[in-house]
Computed example of a mutant assay.
Amino acid sequence: MKKKRLYLSMVFLLTLSMLLAACGKSEESGEKPGSGDKEEKPKFISILTGGTGGTYYPLGGSFAKIIQDATGIDANAETSGASAENMTTLKNGDAEIAFSQTDIASYAVDGKLMFENNKVDNVKAIATLYPETIQIVTTKGSGITSVEDLKGKKVSVGAPGSGTVANAEQILEVHGMTFDDIEKQDLSFDESTQGIQDGTIDAAFVTAGTPTGAVESLGATEDVVIVLITQDKIDELIKKYPFYVKEEIPSGTYGLEAAVTTVAVQAMLVANSNLSEGVVYDITKAIFENLDKVTHAKGKLIKVENALKGVGIDVHPGAQKYFDEKGVKAE
């Protein structure tokens, strides 16, 4: 009888140890990024973009289709007030992915400027995409040829909550001006170009990839002028705000007779940090391995080797895993 009890005890202990080992192994291995486990996948993701006249919206539409086809997750591009509003929406948990300017994402994560009392601590980068050109748009009929000429004019500085507002303020600053020196209007890109066409405003700041749809539409009926920023002011701006880079709008864009020097920040894609590593890995891989399916001209500028340039905030572990596989390093 004792031998039987001893035998049963040994069987019980062996079985228990096997169960514990199996559990430990399961916990240790976890979910492998990119494995496509259905339990970790959301059924739907919302991609916050910008106004319909900008670049974010059509790009977001392409990304949504790519993600849906590659991962099986229903995805949809949503219009919004762009960068600053997108960061706040992500903070509130009302979306999963968003476009943002690199400067605005940095302000949000660091709790600076418009985010001083609204710091965003649940957002990480997926990748930088392409330069976001700051375009000061007007027409030949306005007589505006320099930033200083904006003084006293009706000027749109972008939709409330957009990154364009900060760009406008900083560019005016290095020219010794503030919003008090202009008749500030807070309009979306479409509203801005319509206002220029109607004569209700004189000029507008538009921060978007070129060519920008709303400006192209204006060029169909008006002689578009993009106000240049001189080299000394570009240098001053970059010294104070290092996230800017010099940019040139080529001749022929919007019918321009000559190239125009200006500045740019970068467009980036960010994600709610609560999205799992596996899902963000799959999304990142889907986008960068299907760029041939992006219909907007900016798709040609999106390259995996540039994905970590000027990113400015922490990269999501899922995206980082993909870039590590590709040998892409931060610069």
Rank of each mutant, 00 (worst) to 15 (best):
Y7C: 12
S9D: 12
V11D: 08
L13P: 06
L20D: 06
A22T: 13
E39K: 15
E40A: 11
K43M: 09
T52G: 10
G53E: 02
G53F: 03
T55C: 06
P58V: 07
I66R: 00
I66D: 00
I66Y: 01
E78Q: 14
E78Y: 14
G81W: 11
E96V: 06
G111N: 10
E116G: 11
V123E: 00
I126K: 00
L129F: 05
L129V: 03
K140R: 14
L150N: 04
K151H: 12
G152C: 11
V155D: 01
G163V: 07
H175M: 05
F179K: 08
D181N: 15
E183P: 13
S188M: 08
E191N: 12
T193D: 04
I196Q: 00
T200Y: 11
P211D: 04
A214I: 12
V224G: 05
I226N: 00
V227L: 09
V227S: 05
T230I: 10
E236Q: 13
K239S: 07
K239N: 08
Y244S: 00
T253S: 13
A259D: 05
L269H: 01
V270F: 01
S276I: 04
T284Y: 00
F288S: 01
N290T: 09
L291A: 02
L291P: 07
V294A: 04
I302V: 12
I302T: 04
Y322N: 00
